Simulated scan of single mutants.
Amino acid sequence: MSNAFPSANFTEMLGITPIALVSDQQIWDELLTPQVKAFLGEIQGAPTVRVQETVSGEFPGDEVTNLNGHLLYGKPGYVRFPYIQTVYRTKYGCVIIKRDGLKFKVTAWVGKRGKQELIFRASLRDRRYDGTKRADDSSLLDFTYADAINAPLQKDGKTIDAKSVELSIYAFMPGSKIASACGDNAFEEFVRNPYTFLDRPKLFIKYFRKAWKTERSPGQVANPIPDVSGITPAVFEKFAIDAGYDFIENSSSHYHIAMWGVSLGYRYTLPENAKVLAAFTAGIKQLKASGIELTRPQESWVCVLQSLPKEHLPKDLKVLDLAGPVWPQDNIGPANLWMNKPLTERAKQLLPE
């Protein structure tokens, strides 16, 4: 008779995954770097903890999403699954930690209320529902993951029996955003996502030339906080391993991010993407061998330029034409440049190089 009772993990079946249980103290102590905490100052008083069910956040810029368009109480502006929001006031700003069953997301802000500036955003997200509409039921997403192209890790066309999380990390030096420095909001939007300007080729070229002379990589609308890229990867991996995950993944929006991933031991998930990145790397190497000097940001801008239709490429920029590869992730469509890193021996056996 006892065999008739199920042994299922009901908590996880309801969508409460291990990564959602990383504690606030772990996040503050380990994930927020010394320089980020220096900008924030010490925590002031007790935090405010609430269960939230609305898209609106603590203030403008702190909103969540409802990608599947669910209605609650017959009204828009709500989310399907509630999330927990914890707000820590600090001497110079605040830290907001949001978590639902699939993800935790931490943001750090400096400045007085009404003039907050985002300086840090980091998250880990369980990928088990990717490739289905259920993935987009999480309200802590910035992009859709429902398309089958974003299905979890596979081998020979079948999803492997493994747990995986996706990391996301951004850091912004206070007061260094492009629009704040030069007042050009459109140029900042171009740097944020140049692919959204491809339908306006003349404007694309104008801003491309401007970006080429800067030290900003595509996507980098503010200067990075120096210690973030060196500290956070190991912390993310520790959190994932402690929570029982086999893989950690990222989707690399630009060439410099992909190269950062490679330096940390990440592999390209899809063979076709590995070939595209090999073509980019070879093309950039060839440009340098021909005598063209390229900074690290310019390497990434070369990759962006390949998406501009050739008929719109000015004569003086044709020297940067790599004649073939196109960057696989534009942050407009559903395609992502997935990279993965095995965290366990089991993972290495499941998905060998």
Rank of each mutant, 00 (worst) to 15 (best):
D100Q: 05
Q116Y: 14
S123W: 00
I84P: 01
E117H: 07
Q85I: 01
K163W: 11
Y88E: 02
Q85H: 01
L71F: 13
T144L: 07
G157Q: 04
K133R: 14
L118F: 06
L124D: 10
I84K: 07
A148S: 13
D161R: 14
Y78I: 03
D142L: 15
Y83E: 06
F120D: 04
Y92T: 04
R128I: 11
G93K: 03
A162H: 03
T159D: 07
G101L: 09
R99I: 00
K105N: 13
R99D: 03
G74H: 11
L71T: 00
I96M: 10
V106A: 10
K163M: 12
F143G: 03
R121A: 14
Y92M: 12
R127A: 02
L72K: 06
I119E: 04
K155S: 14
V87D: 08
N150T: 04
V79A: 05
K103Q: 15
T159G: 07
S123P: 07
R128N: 03
I97N: 05
R89V: 07
E117K: 07
I84R: 09
E117I: 05
D156C: 08
V106C: 09
I149A: 10
K105S: 14
N150R: 01
Y129V: 08
A135C: 09
I96V: 15
K158N: 13
R80A: 10
K163N: 13
Y129T: 08
D142N: 15
R128T: 12
A108L: 01
L118I: 10
L153T: 08
Y129R: 00
T90I: 12
C94A: 15
G101H: 05
T132K: 02
A108G: 10
A162C: 11
R128Y: 10
T159H: 06
S139R: 06
G111E: 11
D126F: 00
W109K: 05
G93I: 09
T132S: 13
V110P: 00
K112V: 15
L153W: 02
Y88W: 14
T86L: 01
L140M: 12
L140I: 09
R134Y: 09
